[in-house]
Design a protein around this nucleic acid. Structure first.
Lengths: 295, 295
DNA sequence: AAGAATGATGCGATTTAGGTATTATTATGC
DNA sequence: GCATAATAATACCTAAATCGCATCATTCTT
């Protein structure tokens, strides 16, 4: 059975006249007669009652007409959707992100994209950078918002989106709070209030690394899971903590925030994708994302 | 596009291996490769990523797979339904009936049929006999329960289902109530409580006819629309009324029922259909209807 | 580096579809 | 009542599409 047969059957059911239907279909009457007969033979039923003078649908024909219409329209819609997918106007875009990548820019970019491409489904999933990296290279993730140094070493195409120093949060009456900036050497002597290794090994190790650049090891104090809890301990004078600078715009009462004197920890996030798996969806997303940056 | 291409595409999407898919499809690998390529060309997208070593669906392929499955299964179901319709096990059976044809036998036959052929839709419509007759001969009604004398004059195939004399309902203290049977000649002198002509012209004229056989004309008393109202007037001694004998099995208090002495009015209803439009549905219904009569 | 696995390509044979001419049948008009 | 017009079916031919076989090209494995 060919789709064309279904389409021709539908036209004939509308015209109820082989000659006129054949004309509409840009073909001759005899092939149409044969085609309908072949369809009837294949289905094992008569679709039309025809007595050389009048053509009308049988009960079976009425039923099959509705089925044929359903099938052909579904296929036509599918073809249009496929075309839209080819233009990156339909489909599913899978985007990964790390906790700290969620900025206003990130959110508004999502909104803009959804507005411009309403038929694209966006699947967002939080994953640590290395996992995203693997998923991108495997092709199961289109785009990842991940730590910049990783995409640099993996040589993935990317756009940098965040670059902000980690800063020190201290109690206002802390001995170090009097200085404009704080030295890592001084920090290493104070207890660090930080989350446990298991919560985010990447950041944890990265912080350790920041200290070891200067031959230092931080002196760990309390380990707390939530940021708010950490700030409470800091305010209570039990030590200091480290935060991305944007995380503390509205400062907490009793705390003060100081930059580190030496080059220390700089949180850098990039939007990365795979050259190999680059598709129209990705291209369109990048375009929307960068356009927004301009405006 | 052929349906077979969609089916082959589905198999290949399951196997993800041209050789194995071709084997399952009882064909050689080269034609399958070409067929898939032709499908891709027609759709304008690649359905599979294939690098001489691995075959996997593209995003478009995943989407089209779901559409192809939907389309092919719908067509398969449609073909099964068509086959069922050929056996009279699916479709729509249109049955007409007149008011007085609704008996217990009629109702239980409907139930039995619906039980035996659950996929057949029964469309019941009440219509006077002549209209049903026209609809049957035109083919828009499969079966009609109509007045027997009409099907006899039109020579339609039919099965008689009701034959019952009309009888006379009288008040117990009515002068004619003392006799075993009542004569039409006596009846013609008494007032007849009957429904108005507009309610059922067929029966009304038929009753007039019954009297005119004997050169008589009934003497009309009250015209009432509902049967119960007629019985009340009769019980009150305002005259007599005429009823099909089964309509008064459980007699009303204060009334008595008498047969007419002479051959008078005999209500005969038949189930009729058209030889020309006889289809499996009709055959099956007749079979169920007569089977029930036996049991 | 050689061989096995696997999808693509070339070619000839068969099947299938479409076009033209014609036939058969039925309704309509004089 | 017969001739004609209308219309779907059939016959026959040509063109196109499909299939199977043989082969090629590429890539992974050992």
């Amino acid at each position: 059975m060919r789709i064309q047969q279904l389409e021709n059957f539908i036209v004939l059911a509308e015209e109820l006249h082989f000659g006129k239907a054949a004309e509409r279909l840009h073909m001759q009457q005899p092939p149409l007669s044969r085609q309908i007969k072949a369809l009837e033979d294949e289905l094992g039923v008569l679709l039309f009652k025809r007595n050389n003078r009048k053509v009308e649908l049988t009960e079976e024909g009425v039923f099959f007409l509705q089925e044929a219409k359903a099938v052909t329209t579904r296929l036509t819609v599918a073809q249009h959707t496929l075309k839209a997918m080819g233009n990156g106007e339909a489909g599913t875009l899978r985007i990964g992100f790390v906790d700290s990548s969620i900025t206003e820019r990130f959110v508004t970019a999502m909104g803009r994209f959804k507005e411009q491409y309403p038929n694209v489904i966006i699947e967002l999933e939080e994953k640590v950078s290395v996992e995203q990296l693997a998923a991108i290279e495997e092709g199961s993730l289109h785009i990842g918002f991940i730590r910049t140094h990783l995409v640099e070493t993996h040589e993935l195409p990317h756009i940098d989106v965040i670059s902000e120093p980690y800063i020190v949060a201290l109690a206002k009456d802390h001995p170090l709070a009097g200085q404009e900036t704080v030295s890592v050497y001084d920090l290493a002597k104070e207890p660090l209030i930080f989350f446990p290794h298991r919560k985010n090994p990447g950041i944890y190790n990265w912080v350790l690394n920041g200290f070891s650049q200067y031959g230092l090891v931080p002196k760990f104090g309390f380990e707390v899971v939530m940021d708010q809890a950490a700030e409470m301990f800091v305010a209570g004078g039990f030590g200091y903590t480290l935060l991305p600078s944007t995380s503390c715009r509205m400062g907490r009462r009793g705390l003060t925030y100081k930059r580190v004197k030496e080059p220390f920890l700089n949180l850098r996030i990039s939007m990365a994708w795979s050259q190999a798996h680059e598709c129209p969806l990705v291209k369109n997303f990048i375009e929307v994302f960068t356009q927004q940056a301009d405006s």
